[in-house]
Design a protein around this nucleic acid. Structure first.
Lengths: 415, 415
DNA sequence: AGTATTTTTTCGAGGCTCGAAAAAATAAAG
DNA sequence: CTTTATTTTTTCGAGCCTCGAAAAAATACT
């Protein structure tokens, strides 16, 4: 049962509106905020005055140019970078990275590290993550008190409450409650996110016009992942991170997938599958652990040059993706798609078969109008999404002092 | 951009909470409502007193027994049946029905009518719908002023704004804006709903324990349809009613589907497909227009008796449904499933292959725990869902007098 | 009849948003 | 350089809304 609205929730929510309006718009004036939120000028004035006093917002005097107009000039509001900081940690195959981001969204420090995730023990894996976070928190330039959130993204399935990794292709370990581990270690609220979901979050921030309420981000990499935004909200499963597009069934009983089952989309479109087909190996051949980006590029080059098994492998990948998307579109209606990851660079080889396949499906009735965008570099996107996710959380914590005042660095210091 | 919360929205929403608490609970006391909504006793007292004065709620004195306890007895609140009425219209293959439902949810009048939807012209189809509604509205026992909503459910695809039928298997006509037509004709707000979505709505009301936040209703009939509730809300596509489970691709390039494409789940599991396979016709054979329920029952009987092509046909249906559900579960995580419609009576023939197939998919990892429920009669369910949908809408209109006071029969008449 | 107990209503306090008016800050005009 | 026009922002009182505490109401128990 959803609960009634208390009187004090009202202020809390409207504060949130103001903060998120500022985060979205950059340097909006109070008047602009009033317009986008629909609240009255008096309310905006009261709320923003509070937020400034609390050190969350700051007046960014003389907002550049716009002194052309007549009356009193607008004074832009911006996020105070020092109001808080967050950590974005990204754990992917053989690679761990962390970034410290200030409240305004700027990266203030970062570190990257290669490791061998596939062979590491559970404790080693956890230890590396904890250690890389600790190194950042020990940086003397950073006010540890201001760190309000850690978001950790991982390639794999996470639980719907964003606490734990349930399964991941980058490690044989399962069920690691990273969020709890980090919280216990550092006393900072933490979440465990799915990498593809973070890609989607980032795309939304990067290009809100193109990726607004409904869109799909597909990771074309060793495996196939998906982040889905529907009706303006990240779509997650009911128990897990959900959206296991790569493991929808393309051909019942078909090619052997890395997950041990048969006929998944990934078993035709993942790097290992393209590799396997290009080598004309059996569909039952055990998936290889990793194919280097260089090898995949070579494969793509060869596929472009001659009409051999390499080209056919990409064709099959496109077909699998197309039918998979078609089935997906049958459920959710078509939406813009962003193809992310190394294999997105070979999308020219994939697209024809993909479009041909999708046109044969219920979801592909207007397949011509479905737009595909490519972004070969997934890591920056994932980190960016992580950061925005963590910052949005902070937005929702700092403005909720009615429930539990955060004793952080943003105390009242003026009146 | 979501809009800020105005001060008067607060009352409006809390009124809604109270009304829906009463609709859900039956005869809750004010104290019980306070408990479920989390609002204070004083607030509940004020709101319910308003609602009673406005004729929306009524005190149902001496709520049966519970005079066992000591203190002042609770006085149950109930919906005033005369506060409003709604019409539920269901249009399915060769069949049109309407029911008048009072505000408390009781059917007060109904009419059913056979017609030949497949051959009717556009105007005839619209005319029949308008006529059957008109006949109910002209009933002298009915206060036309009190009719606050018409909900029309149709088998087929509707648009996401619930205004029009886009496509339906029961008629060659497309794009009929039934909601607008009915509104123009009678001046009563109307909506156009998808039949399977209404099934899901009804299941939620019928058995809220089993069908709470996440579940799936699948219609096994001539075609295959689905209604999906995720996180407590009806899931619809972004442009259309969405959830075209029957047209997810089971086998690329496979059996000919009624929709003209190949390999859809429906092309294996719809009545016509089972019929086609049982007759050992080619997968390319044109789907028949209709198979009678009696024929399907005979088919099922024969399948149970001998291990022939009939049994194999049901096995194939189960397999298609299983792989389809597996792909669906890969996206949304497993959830309870209700199998509705005539073929649900033959679910014993379908289930083994279904479970075997689903176990081979990513979504079926715990396939043993997925529960299936069967309900052979879809029509009452659809009508019930329609009625509840319409009533919920009324709940949200009557309690919103701040925006636009409804001048209906529920005016203030005491103070 | 009196007491205990539970439900419901009443009443004042505290908050929040809103509209209108005032104040502030600038460009244009004289 | 002063005045006027214009636009943004703040101030202030009014009107609601919810809440907690206390009172009132209605019944069972003694």
């Amino acid at each position: 049962m959803s609960v009634g609205i208390r009187h004090d929730d009202l202020r809390r929510r409207n504060r949130a509106m103001v903060i998120s309006a500022v985060r979205r718009a950059g340097h909006p004036s109070r008047t602009e905020i009033a317009a986008t939120t629909g609240l009255s000028h008096s309310t905006i004035s009261a709320i923003s005055s509070d937020l400034i006093q609390e050190g969350i917002l700051a007046e960014s005097r003389a907002s550049e140019s716009v002194s052309l107009k007549r009356g009193r000039p607008q004074v832009g509001l911006s996020l105070n970078p020092e109001a808080a900081a967050v950590l974005a940690v990204v754990l992917s195959l053989n690679f761990l990275s962390v970034a410290v981001i200030d409240y305004a969204g700027q990266v203030v420090a970062e570190e990257q590290r290669r490791l061998d995730t596939l062979t590491m023990s559970r404790d080693e894996l956890i230890g590396e993550c904890v250690a890389i976070v600790r190194r950042q928190l020990e940086d003397p330039d950073l006010d540890v008190q201001s760190v309000a959130r850690i978001a950790l993204a991982i390639q794999g399935i996470t639980d719907s409450s964003a606490r734990a990794m349930l399964w991941s292709p980058i490690t044989p370990q399962t069920n690691i409650a990273f969020a709890d581990i980090l919280e216990d270690e550092f006393g900072i609220p933490a979440t465990m996110e799915n990498d593809c979901n973070m890609m989607a979050v980032a795309l939304r921030w990067r290009d809100p016009d193109r990726y607004r309420d409904d869109f799909i981000a597909i990771l074309l990499s060793h495996g196939i992942g998906m982040g889905l935004v529907l009706k303006g909200e990240l779509f997650t499963g009911t128990h897990s991170s959900g959206g296991e597009f790569g493991h929808m069934i393309h051909r019942p009983g078909g090619a052997l997938c890395r997950c041990g089952r048969r006929g998944c989309v990934e078993a035709y479109a993942g790097n290992y599958a393209i590799w396997r087909n290009a080598r004309q190996l059996s569909e039952n051949a055990e998936p290889v652990a990793d194919v280097s980006d260089a090898d995949m590029r070579a494969l793509a080059t060869r596929a472009r040059e001659t009409d051999g098994p390499e080209r056919e492998a990409y064709r099959k990948a496109g077909e699998a993706l197309g039918f998979g998307l078609g089935s997906l579109f049958a459920l959710i209606d078509p939406a813009p798609v962003a193809m992310v990851g190394a294999s997105a660079a070979a999308f020219d080889l994939i697209e024809p078969a993909l479009r041909e396949a999708i046109a044969q499906t219920a979801g592909g009735q207007h397949s011509g109008s479905i737009s595909f965008d490519t972004e070969p570099n997934e890591l920056p996107l994932i980190r960016e999404g992580c950061a925005m996710r963590a910052l949005s959380f902070v937005d929702q914590e700092i403005f909720a002092p009615g429930v539990q005042a955060r004793g952080g660095s943003a105390g009242k210091n003026v009146a």
